[in-house]
Write a protein that binds this DNA or RNA. Structure first.
Lengths: 242, 242
DNA sequence: CGTCAGTCAACTGTTGACAATCGGCAACCG
DNA sequence: CGGTTGCCGATTGTCAACAGTTGACTGACG
């Protein structure tokens, strides 16, 4: 990969230069997509990427294939790859799946949560309070993601973690854009506090109920109005992966 | 791909010769793994596959990458690919996720299920009754999978469908081997009947409760005893995909 | 006899070239 | 003037060769 690129953005992984080119390209593109530097719908030309990253097309193709498999790009057999976009419907669908996964996660987590994990949740909760007070939405969303991720991690279910990570990678880009979601920021700390209380009380059902409610609210609003995902220029229904 | 291979095994897809080699190899290997012709732990040598399928290593590598992304094979960076295996723990974990997904599915399905979908469920239920009577476990498991798949399809949530399909592709091979599962075959028809009744009655909560119970039973037994997945020769913890 | 270093074969990672296909453009025909 | 057909550029699909690494085998030394 380009030395300039490497020095510029992968400084943290300088010690781990054992990664294959395919992995580096994969990580690079994934990061570009998740950070919205590559916007949904944008075309990903193999030759252009090849030139830009100074890698032959082989690793590029393999990385694009993996990204397609994870739902971050969409590959049409002989017409190239584009950054995937979520329609309004898909966004709502994903939200429903997310609710199911997180509900399971907190049910599993409550009986087995460790002190340090609980402490981390409290810490993130405090941070979010500050971010809300300062009206710092970007930081808030990061902390919020970490909060929910922490619950999933505490469930100690790796398969659940995989599916959750996959789902959030697809949804993540759209969350901060959702105006309706932004409107719910104010009530989040209160709800998080209630969830924390239920977790500390060791009540899985109550924790799950509160969490479901917490997640469900924006979902309903989205379904009614619908401004979260972009207009979505009537993306083709079927891709090559089921 | 080899004409001999093509004539021999892909006769059904003769009309759809538009698929790329990568896709053909992917489908082929996927089928081989799901049908247990390729057993967990088996090494997948690129050169050998290349010779066997009469395709160069390029498409083979891409197909293996996709399969790795779906969790059907496990790729270790410079040591090749092997057919993935599920440890006892992973099997139980997957079962928990499955329960969460199917519970969501039936909740969504109940209010919107169509007459023909309901008919299909009844039909499969009848089939299973016969298969149980004839002690035809293989056919039973197929019908059982179709039954649960039908519920997921009826939910009309494509994202949910994706995750469910991914999960079942990983678990599917191990289900028929599970002796404890075989023991539950007898009670399945009764439970399916109860679920069907709840669906017909339009009671999502009751249907979800019954379905959760139905799925949960083998899960508990597995956790206690553990004979479903193979001994699993201490597979390495970390793979290249999170 | 056990252990360690050095060599070697096999395999994967990567590359550049070749071939096939698709979409757009322009010329031709009705 | 509108529609169709054939050509052309661009891009992806595939291949075969090269290069680097890994793990195992062999042989020597303690």
């Amino acid at each position: 990969m380009a030395t300039s690129e490497t020095d510029e953005r992968s400084t943290k992984s300088l010690g781990v230069r054992n990664k294959t080119l395919r992995e580096q390209v994969f990580d690079h593109l994934r990061e570009e997509i998740l950070s919205n530097r590559l916007t949904p719908g944008q075309e990903l030309n193999e030759l252009a990427l090849s030139a830009e990253l100074e890698v032959s097309r082989g690793p590029i193709r393999e990385a694009l294939g993996r990204l397609a498999s994870e739902g971050l790009v969409k590959v049409t057999p002989r017409r190239g790859a584009v950054v995937a976009e979520l329609t309004d419907e898909e966004f709502v669908e994903a939200y429903q799946v997310r609710e199911a996964l997180e509900t399971l996660a907190i049910r599993l987590a409550v009986p087995r949560i460790e002190a340090d994990e609980l402490a981390r949740l409290r810490e993130l909760h405090e941070e979010m309070n500050e971010f809300v007070a300062n009206d710092d939405t970007t930081e808030f969303f990061d902390a919020n993601s970490a909060f929910h991720q922490q619950i999933v991690d505490a469930s100690r279910n790796a398969k659940l973690g995989e599916h959750y990570r996959l789902l959030m990678a697809q949804m993540g880009r759209y969350l901060p854009r959702s105006l309706t979601l932004r409107g719910t920021i104010g009530s989040s700390p209160t709800e998080h506090a209630a969830i924390l209380a239920a977790v500390e009380a060791g009540d899985p059902d109550e924790a799950a109920r509160l969490l479901a409610n917490h997640i469900e609210i924006p979902q309903r609003i989205e379904a009614g109005e619908g401004d979260a995902p972009q207009p979505a220029l009537t993306a083709a229904e079927e891709s090559e992966e089921q």
